[in-house]
Design a protein around this nucleic acid. Sequence first.
DNA 1: GTCTATATGTCAGTCACTGACATAACGCAG
DNA 2: CTGCGTTATGTCAGTGACTGACATATAGAC
Lengths: 190, 190
Amino acid sequence: MPRSSEDARYRMQIAALELFTKNGFEQTTAAQIAARAGVTERTFFRHFPDKREVLFAGQEVLSAALTEAIVQAPADLPPRAVLRRAFADVTPLLEGNRRFSEPRQHIIAANPALMEREVAKHAALAGVVADALQKRGIAPARAAFAAKAGLVVLGHALGLWFEKASQPLETCIAEAFKELDLFVSPAGDS
Amino acid sequence: MPRSSEDARYRMQIAALELFTKNGFEQTTAAQIAARAGVTERTFFRHFPDKREVLFAGQEVLSAALTEAIVQAPADLPPRAVLRRAFADVTPLLEGNRRFSEPRQHIIAANPALMEREVAKHAALAGVVADALQKRGIAPARAAFAAKAGLVVLGHALGLWFEKASQPLETCIAEAFKELDLFVSPAGDS
DNA sequence: GTCTATATGTCAGTCACTGACATAACGCAG
DNA sequence: CTGCGTTATGTCAGTGACTGACATATAGAC
């Protein structure tokens, strides 16, 4: 009965968010989520490869947007500048999702297994960004390094952004890049 | 029968390495590892909180060594220099473990769940390093950033080291730091 | 030689996840 | 509007990771 696959999927995500918030991740069983969404446990696992993944759907739009922004950047820019621009390009996307990502972040931070999945997703995103940089002609090893370094910066920016509520993300990104500069060339260093 | 807890633990690690290499991680059950080590499945899970963890024992010595090296570094050094020195300090430790870490890395690279645990361990190590930097008086946010950036560099160095077999690790670390400098200040940038 | 702490064995149980097969709804061709 | 293939779902049985409770055996202290 393909009544609406996306509908059920969405209901499961909402149900999971609610149950995780109320009872915690480990205390919530996949069957409970499915029941609340009006489907079977088996259906849950057909939509999400595992129980954690229900919290991490929608990452593809970010990686796609980042790839697009990287590939479309002016040809002569070095990796750092490409990433700086690309991050700025995706801020609307991230800012638009803040209402969802904030409670999500609470749930994730409260559970080691979810933290593990989160850093794994970051690593995967670094892989995607590295691929995009390679399409610009950057050598693989250099692209991989730039991607990982860039994602550390973006991660730091998001951390600042979650703390200081009212600041625009763009400001936090600028600050994070300054932090990187400071790390590499500390004030008063030889 | 506390005949020798460490003995059994070691036998399980060896058994796991052998079985994972031969049959793969997913195809190997915890009961099989335990049986080969001459213990029960229950005993396996008393020594390792989960099946993956049997591959990640011994990380504490690295984090302890890094912490020690960071705390002991001269007082006036900026974070980057502290980490640069600390990484150099722990090269003997890493080089001494290469015989074990190489087959391990093969197993890990072949399985997504193990990759996930690996990046989680990296993140945990970053946390430890950040704590050590804080003990030097670095502000928390700055310490956290420096730790993550530094670990990206170390990770890149280890990557180079695993590829180019005969190169000393110290050389790879130097090269990785150069890669960082180049990322921040590309040649021919304004 | 008892006594205690600790490492292990045993067993039953929960839950994440999977494969195989049946079924119902939807879109489309006729 | 009727038959048909595609697709999302339900059902069911099974495996394996992991846990709690309880019994037991051993090494070492005294």
